[in-house]
Design a protein around this nucleic acid. Structure first.
Lengths: 262, 262
DNA sequence: TAGAACAGTTCCATTATTCGGAACTTAGTC
DNA sequence: GACTAAGTTCCGAATAATGGAACTGTTCTA
């Protein structure tokens, strides 16, 4: 489950195709051929053929107004990737247990390069649509989950990861340099959990603990998140032991079932 | 959004890679190199390199026990494909309205080749996990949504689609030949909605209406689904007008916003 | 513990695909 | 109706994929 940072240009035919797919799918507005041409390093002929291939394969879809949109085959792939994910399956009951204890939204995520990918979520009311987060990627340096996961990383990998970060200030509290982040991670490593003090979104706080174990090829985490008016820092401190305990439980079971021996 | 049937072997390098990805991701048990070798037409050297590429790109992930599992990058792609899907966004408020009227689970789906892909779902209680269905593919011939969508297809395309079907008997009520299906579709076309009379799953019934309009490059549908003990056929008949009305509303707005002119 | 069988990986000359500049077609403008 | 821009097609050259065979490591078995 450990993977590269994903930002490399794209080696081989497959890599180029996926880099292009990324470009189109990540855009927030519909792109036409010329728009994509401007964003891509490829010459026209090449780009056109690559797009045709993506459309042929159902990864993109060419609309009547000549804009490209993500294809349905992506959803099909993801549905199976999600429901078949062993780690998620193992963690699921733990997430519910934690949600019962805390009463606020619980997240499960794993570290992938410079990002945290959300794998699952348990919440009480559906104020926000449930799936909205699943599969989403968030920056590591300003989310509780991200920092918890980072705190579990071996030093060399951590240094490399931090060196590759480009910080963006989301709120007044966002950490925007490697030094502050490292200090925060030292603290997280010491106490066993990490906080998000309204660093990613204003009025949103969270406490998270890392999931990792020898023999586990990846690093992840769980978190409890809530709005600042309901969730004080003191409240987060209260939840922290439970979060750590549940994370440890998941780590143990995952290492047992996903580890090298069997 | 209209796409090929997806079952073709895979032309070009990308096609071959995706056919392989399909094979691995679709499997319900973890596959090792040799297992995949047995399932794939490729020779060893080729297969090995292709798998390496998929792993490098994050579409697959090689676990410590040498089995391959779906990669996290698939989830990332899908999250954006889902949240950015214009058709889904347009339909969302309509789904909620229908859910309020009927009180049972509402689905939104589109036809892709021989399958229905579920795009969204609104339900009251989270007895079944929400995302479980999103992105899932179901056969067209035994789901209300599938039959509703088929009923909106032009005759030539319909004939072709039916000709390509391979029927599987899921329950005692599953239609298992083109003739019965066509009769059912004639009826659906006449009344404007289609039923699933426990044809896909025992004790599950549903009523669905097609979403389509001139200028819309795809065909879809919405449905109301419920357990047989709570949802009689008479009840489905009661809901049918509402389902048709909501479907018509989505068709109209989608044609307006997604159609060729702007 | 040797040795056989198997699983996984690497190598490299051959072959097939992709590349990309340029020509071509279509749609929209003045 | 000429002009401009967007989108598409073509084809020799460049590149990447192919797949048989050799290699390495691991697991049975006698």
């Amino acid at each position: 489950m450990l993977e590269g940072n994903g930002s490399e240009g794209g080696t081989g035919t497959l890599g180029k195709a996926l880099a292009l797919l990324d470009l189109v799918v990540a855009s927030d507005r519909p792109l036409r051929f010329t728009d994509i041409l401007a964003l891509s390093p490829q010459p026209r002929g090449t780009l056109h053929r690559q797009l045709s291939h993506l459309v042929e394969e159902g990864l993109l879809s060419l609309r009547a107004d000549l804009t490209y949109e993500p294809g349905l085959r992506l959803l099909k792939f993801a549905a199976r990737a999600w429901s078949g994910n062993q780690f998620r399956v193992i963690a699921e009951p733990y997430l519910h247990r934690l949600h019962e204890e805390a009463g606020e939204t619980v997240h499960l995520g794993v570290l992938r390069g410079q990002e945290v990918i959300y794998l699952d979520k348990v919440e009480s009311r559906q104020t926000v649509r449930m799936q909205s987060q699943i599969g989403n990627a968030s920056p590591v340096y300003c989310t509780g989950l991200g920092k918890a996961a980072l705190s579990a990383l071996p030093v060399e990998v951590l240094e490399e990861t931090i060196a590759g970060l480009s910080f963006q200030k989301f709120t007044a509290h966002t950490l925007t340099d490697g030094q502050s982040l490292k200090r925060d991670l030292d603290e997280a490593r010491r106490v066993g959990h990490a906080f998000d003090r309204e660093e990613h979104e204003a009025e949103i706080r969270c406490v998270a603990a890392p999931i990792h174990a020898p023999g586990l090829s990846f690093v992840g985490g769980i978190s409890v998140t809530g709005p600042a008016y309901r969730v004080t820092m003191a409240q987060l401190e209260n939840w922290a032991p439970a979060v750590r305990r549940i994370a440890a439980g998941i780590s143990e079971e995952a290492a047992l079932k996903l580890g090298p021996g069997r």
